[in-house]
């Protein structure tokens, strides 16, 4: 079994220690850092992600895998930076102003990180300005918003408008989700993407960022 396959397997099993040992071993053997990331860590995440989509595993198994991947990525980070390899994308995520429901948002965040994206978590009850400020300062590719209430989803168009006013609308894609949100609403407010659940949100974000 190649070192990449071994890393992938350890990722799928959520083994932090095993991943760290194998990644370190690969680094010591001068294996290309980008290859370790893509053919080992992310490949493992792809497999577990597919199993989740097929209802073969539950979220905890995906999150354990993501945790193991983060441990491996931390070891690779100096080498990736040195080689000029950047995070495949950046996302500013939060639950909109007036809404305190955040477990769905937290799931999306963790799943996006599992896709190798850098995620800036703004928390719950987030002012429209905060999304814009973070997207500008961190050069985010995506603003991701969630709302669970019929009375707070109306904050979403405010964020779309704020992005236009700040002159960043053409640089940032806007994703929305949450129980009362629909594709029709997404189209109506001029957001870019709606996804119905955490896994599809992470998949789409990775696709949008070209990861």
């Amino acid at each position: 079994m190649s070192v990449f396959a071994e890393i992938s397997e350890q990722i799928q099993n959520g083994k932090v220690k095993g991943v760290k040992e194998l990644v370190q071993k690969a680094i010591d053997e001068k294996v290309n850092a980008k290859d370790i990331l893509e053919k080992g860590l992310l490949a493992g995440m792809d497999v577990i992600g597919e199993k989740f989509r097929k209802n073969e595993v539950f979220v905890p198994q995906v999150l354990l895998a993501a945790r193991a991947m983060n441990a491996g990525t931390a070891l690779l980070k100096p080498l990736l930076t040195q080689a000029g390899v950047k995070a495949s994308g950046k996302v500013a995520i939060g639950t909109v102003k007036g809404d305190l429901h955040d477990i769905g948002k937290n799931l999306v965040k963790l799943m996006m990180e599992g896709k190798g994206l850098e995620v800036f978590d703004l928390g719950a009850n987030v002012d429209p300005e905060k999304y814009i400020e973070t997207a500008k300062n961190e050069n985010c590719n995506i603003i991701a918003m969630s709302a669970l209430l019929t009375t707070t989803m109306s904050v979403m168009p405010e964020v779309v408008e704020a992005a236009k006013k700040a002159g960043i609308r053409d640089k940032v894609k806007i994703m929305i989700g949450g129980a009362p949100i629909t594709q029709t609403y997404c189209d109506q407010i001029g957001a870019d993407y709606f996804t119905p659940d955490a896994a599809s949100a992470a998949d789409l974000a990775a696709k949008v960022c070209g990861a």
């Binding site: 007036g98 019929t150 009375t151 989803m153 109306s154 904050v155 009362p180």
Partner: peptide, 8 residues
């Protein structure tokens, strides 16, 4: 019961 989609 709750409100329909609207700002509050």
């Amino acid at each position: 019961f709750t409100l329909p989609t609207m700002s509050l």
